[in-house]
Design a binder for these strands. Structure first.
Lengths: 150, 150
DNA sequence: ACCTTATAGTTTCACTTGTAACCAATTGCA
DNA sequence: TGCAATTGGTTACAAGTGAAACTATAAGGT
């Protein structure tokens, strides 16, 4: 063994394509974007707005803060999304009796109409994605996500 | 059955917390952000820049286009990340002989130094995440991601 | 009651991002 | 050879984003 062969520490480059956080990021972006592409053009609806709408569909009369908690989105992002939705007549904003700071948000008639068109479309995308997996794999994925999101 | 109980189509709200695209998005953002938080403050390094660096570590002398292909990132994003990296003296940019449009990108000494600090840190995060899973689950996750990304 | 602190939500500002237009070098082919 | 189409990469502009400051209301303690 010669002296030169020793002592140069090898760099150990990350293999992005096998790096879990990276793969998750690619997958997530691809999936969310492909859904968003459908409703953005058709309904002038951003992903943030859509997420707010899904929360208001499930939990009607939520306050903005509750939407933030349930979407894990930024407070400012929610505020702006709500403003645009109200502006567009898709969400009605009221004030909570007993705390005038608090808003009471509801999907309007028009909001529900859009919701009822977009929701099946989103579900179809999910089904398509899950269609790539066997029953076993779907079950494992469920369990794995539960643990990771724990 | 009375007339009223018929014909009002129930809204079927998406349950975000069981909706795969949404869960992937939360997981991915949480994970990537927690890694990024560490190197952003410490090295003034954005996630895009870090991704470019990992590619240049694995495939030295790549062109910008090759980086784009390998990261699946946007062409403009890469261009800007590279510009900042060059500016900061972390990447050396040369020109390809035989096609003067094409760049030849390499980590500089300083770039390697940062790489060698950040890479283990990123790996540690990945290990921590995977630590939540059993051996079985890890194996399934691998396979599932292969299929979904395939 | 008074004053401090906390909470709901919005606005501002600086920065990032994506789309489209762009420039320059290269290729294809009439 | 000459000129349209392609490719590598950057720039410009508009839209989106987050951190911090701000307004208004409410709660808590003295």
């Amino acid at each position: 063994m010669t002296l030169e062969t020793v002592s140069v520490p090898a760099h150990a480059p990350l293999e992005l394509e096998h790096f879990l956080p990276y793969r998750l990021s690619i997958l997530s972006n691809t999936v969310s974007q492909s859904i968003a592409d459908e409703y953005q053009g058709r309904f002038q609806l951003s992903m943030t707005e859509w997420r707010v709408m899904t929360i208001l569909a499930r939990f009607p009369a939520s306050s903005a803060t509750q939407v933030v908690e349930r979407t894990r989105m930024d407070k400012v992002a929610v505020s702006r999304a709500v403003a645009r939705l109200v502006e567009a007549g898709r969400v009605d904003r009221g004030t909570y009796d007993g705390d005038k700071r608090r808003s009471v948000l509801q999907l309007s008639e028009a909001g529900w109409a859009i919701h009822d068109e977009v929701a099946p479309l989103a579900r179809a995308h999910e089904r398509e994605l899950l269609g790539k997996l066997s029953e076993d794999e779907k079950a494992w994925l469920e369990k794995i996500l539960d643990k990771l999101l724990g």
